[in-house]
Design a binder for these strands. Structure first.
Lengths: 237, 237
DNA sequence: TATATACGATACTGTGGAGTTCCGGATCTT
DNA sequence: AAGATCCGGAACTCCACAGTATCGTATATA
């Protein structure tokens, strides 16, 4: 419904000229939505109270209800405003090799961001079953951008001739996000760099025929940074 | 804490001889726990009320509180009693090939069972962050048996010499469960036979060097049942 | 049959939180 | 300065649900 952003005016809402005293500000929206996301990540939907969000945003409870008709609507907006910024296809890494691209996508900020978003989703997962709208919003905000990014990198590797065009792009593009979700939600272990590299070298690359020999070091070592053996176009290092 | 089962007596509880009228029956426990699991799968932890469980089990609310001190304890027992039966390692399929074993694990009952258990976990996922005990119980009941089964099949394929001993067994054993979870919880699509086969032929087998040529049919076709090309020991068909 | 217990049903209490209302102060417009 | 509106704070109502208590009944022992 509502989109975040510093300030964005929907002209349809300004139809009738309001020129009295102060105009409709709703200038607290970003703070409130950010507070809602924080509380959701920590307490989940049912553990979150309107008072928590209000006090964390240093706002009055009435202010929230002036802006959103119910707790549910607020949460929908909060989830929607999590839609990722740092994953637009136009500025994904382009190192010349699939492995280089995948490694380059491992950024501490992105990992931390992803873990928090997963915790938010975990907090309202019981609602997703009964609210298709919220479920779709959550998917579009959290998993879809990451899967799309991976799919883009895989497709480019195919066009480059680096990997086979019969590779199962759709499934492979989802593997990393699925494994990270499993790790955060069920195993409660952090998604660190070593884990992601073990996925790349132990699952993704072998599955597209780029395995080092075949398969890889069963990821537990400290720094399995060594690139695979056979490589059609190694540009870096 | 409490384990399910048709009837199992903890001798420690029978210490003092109770020989009056009727003995401690608790004969309704299985019905109540099953009802709790059902309600959890449909409504989640916060959506579930004690009255729902009681009425679905055709029991009185007081009966539940005679047996469990609180809603939380009941839920812990309900989750614990979901621990799988049909996945003990001693009777996993043994077809002679990894692909045959993986395909043989696709059983409608097992899929349906798994989806329901995932829905239960989804319903109390927001609690897992604050209750390590419940989180571990859930993991042991739902994901651990499946991952262990896959790990067993992969290790056997290594011993058999069918796949490379450097295969990333731990990650690959988790892939199917992780992808199925993603599909059920986020994408809200059913885990059907075609999807699981596309995982086997598009991710697992290629990753261990058993891909058909390399990669497989990007799973959308109706019956991609054709086994891969090179195969060291084909016994079936 | 007499006794004691476990059970189902139902009424009850207490509490936490959603949503509402009101008010004083701050801020912008004119 | 005067007017109008938004905000933060705090009090309030209302309700759903956890947990308790009571009672009649069914069932098993003796």
């Amino acid at each position: 419904m509502t989109q975040l952003g510093p300030a964005e005016d929907d002209p349809a809402e300004e139809a009738e000229p309001v020129k009295l005293g102060r105009r409709r500000d709703h200038t607290r929206d970003p703070d409130i939505l950010a507070a809602a996301v924080d509380v959701l990540a920590e307490c989940g939907y049912d553990g979150m109270t309107i008072d928590m969000v209000a006090s964390r945003a240093k706002a009055g409870k009435a202010t929230l209800y002036r802006r959103w008709p119910s707790k549910g609507e607020l949460v929908i907006d909060a989830v929607a405003c999590m839609k990722n910024g740092d994953l637009n296809l136009s500025q994904l890494p382009d190192t010349g090799t699939l492995r280089g691209d995948l490694i380059a996508m491992i950024k501490p900020h992105s990992i931390e961001d992803g873990e928090k978003k997963l915790r938010v989703i975990a907090g309202l997962m019981s609602l997703l079953a009964h609210s298709p709208e919220l479920a779709e919003t959550a998917r579009l905000s959290v998993v879809e951008p990451r899967v799309t990014a991976h799919r883009f990198l895989l497709r480019r590797a195919i066009e480059r001739g680096e990997i086979s065009p019969t590779s199962d792009v759709d499934n492979l593009a989802t593997v990393t996000t699925a494994m990270a979700s499993m790790r955060v939600l069920f195993e409660r272990k952090p998604v660190n760099r070593d884990f992601l590299i073990s996925l790349i070298d132990g699952v993704i690359l072998p599955a597209v025929g780029l395995g080092a020999g075949s398969g890889a070091d069963p990821g537990s070592g400290s720094a399995p940074e060594a690139p695979p053996a056979a490589d059609p176009a190694v540009t870096a290092h």
